[in-house]
C-alpha cells in the first residue's frame, strides 16, 4: 500500500495548459484583428491594434510567464504564419517586447480582485509594449537610411509618426481593447476558470519565487530611462541641443557608430532571450509553484 503525498504545485502540465490556452485564444483574436479594417485619418490610423485583453487577463489570472510567452507564440503562429504575413526576424523583436510587456503587467497584479490594480497594470502593459515597438521602428529607419540627418525633416517625421501611433495605440486600442475588457473579465473569471484547468486560483499577494529580478519595477524604470535617453538623442539629432557632448570619433565615423549600436541592441536582445529561457528552464526543473 502506498500513499502519495499531495503536492499543491503548478505542475509541468498545468504550465502547458496555460501556454496552450493563451496561445490558442490570443492567436485566434490576432487573426481577427489582422482582418478588421482600420480607419485611416491621415497619418493616424484608428485601428484595432490587438486584443491585448486576452494575454493581460490570462497573465493576471495565471502564471504570467507562460501566459505571456504563449500569447506571443500564438501571435506568430496564427496572426503571422497562417495569414502568410510572417515577417521573419522582425517578429522576434515583437515576440520579446510583447511577452515582456504582458509579463510585467501580470506581475504587477497581486490581487486580481482589486480593480484599480488590474486597470493600472493593463494600461501599463500596453504602454510598455507600444513604447518598445515605437522605439524599434525608429531605430529601424535609423539603420536603414544612410545619413539620416542629411535628409531634412526625416528624423522629425519618423518620430512624429511613431509618437502619434504610440498615442493612438495606447489611448484607442489600449483603453477599448485592453483596459475595459480586462476590467470586465478578470474579476469574472477569477476563481472560475482556474478549476477548469485543475488549479487553485492565485491567492492574494502570492510571491514569485523565481524570476524576481525581472520585477515590474525594473521593467518600468528601464522603459522610462530608455524614453529619456531616446528623447535626448533625438533632440540632439534634430539640432535642439540639449547639453553638448559627443562620443570621440563619432563625427568622423558614422558607419561604425551604427554598427556599435546594432551590436548593443543585439546583445541586449540575446541577453533577454537567454535569461528568459534560463528562468523558464529553472522553473521547469524546479517544477514548483512560483505563481
Amino acid at each position: 500500500m502506498s500513499t502519495l503525498k499531495t503536492r499543491y504545485t503548478l505542475t509541468q502540465s498545468q504550465k502547458m495548459m496555460i501556454f496552450v490556452l493563451s496561445m490558442s485564444l490570443y492567436g485566434l483574436s490576432n487573426m481577427f484583428t489582422e482582418l478588421i479594417p482600420s480607419v485611416q485619418l491621415g497619418p493616424i490610423e484608428l485601428s484595432v491594434e490587438y486584443f491585448a485583453f486576452i494575454p493581460l487577463t490570462l497573465c493576471m489570472l495565471f502564471h504570467p510567464l507562460y501566459a505571456a510567452v504563449g500569447a506571443a507564440v500564438g501571435e506568430i503562429i496564427f496572426g503571422e504564419l497562417m495569414l502568410g504575413q510572417f515577417g521573419g526576424l522582425g517578429e522576434l523583436e515583437k515576440f520579446i517586447t510583447f511577452s515582456l510587456a504582458m509579463y510585467t503587467a501580470g506581475r504587477m497584479v497581486s490581487d486580481p480582485k482589486n480593480r484599480r490594480q488590474v486597470g493600472i497594470a493593463a494600461i501599463t502593459g500596453v504602454a510598455i509594449h507600444q513604447f518598445f515597438s515605437s522605439v524599434i521602428d525608429i531605430v529601424k529607419v535609423w539603420v536603414g537610411v544612410e545619413e539620416l540627418e542629411a535628409v531634412q525633416g526625416l528624423a522629425e517625421s519618423v518620430v512624429l509618426i511613431e509618437g502619434v501611433s504610440f498615442l493612438n495605440d495606447v489611448l484607442f486600442s489600449g483603453i477599448l481593447f485592453a483596459l475595459l475588457p480586462t476590467l470586465y473579465l478578470v474579476p469574472r473569471l477569477y476563481g472560475k476558470i482556474e478549476p477548469l484547468l485543475g488549479m487553485k486560483p492565485r491567492e492574494r499577494n502570492m510571491q514569485y519565487a523565481t524570476g524576481a529580478w525581472l520585477s515590474p519595477k525594473l521593467v518600468i524604470v528601464g522603459t522610462l530611462l530608455a524614453a529619456v535617453a531616446l528623447g535626448a538623442e533625438l533632440m540632439s539629432e534634430s539640432g535642439w541641443s540639449f547639453g553638448e557632448f559627443e562620443l570621440p570619433g563619432a563625427e568622423s565615423n558614422e558607419g561604425s557608430l551604427i554598427w556599435i549600436s546594432i551590436a548593443a541592441a543585439a546583445l541586449v536582445a540575446a541577453a533577454i532571450i537567454l535569461i528568459l529561457r534560463r528562468s523558464a528552464r529553472r522553473r521547469q526543473e524546479a517544477g514548483q509553484l512560483d505563481g
Binding site: 529607419v141 537610411v145 535628409v151 531634412q152 525633416g153 522629425e156 517625421s157 519618423v158 512624429l160 509618426i161
Partner: peptide, 21 residues
C-alpha cells in the same frame, strides 16, 4: 507618409532618394 511629413518639416525633393533606398 514619412516623405510627406519630411517635406513639411522643411525637407525637399532630395529626401526621395534615401527613402527609395
Amino acid at each position: 507618409w514619412m516623405f510627406l511629413l519630411s517635406l513639411f518639416f522643411g525637407g525637399g525633393g532630395e529626401s526621395v532618394l534615401p527613402m527609395l533606398t
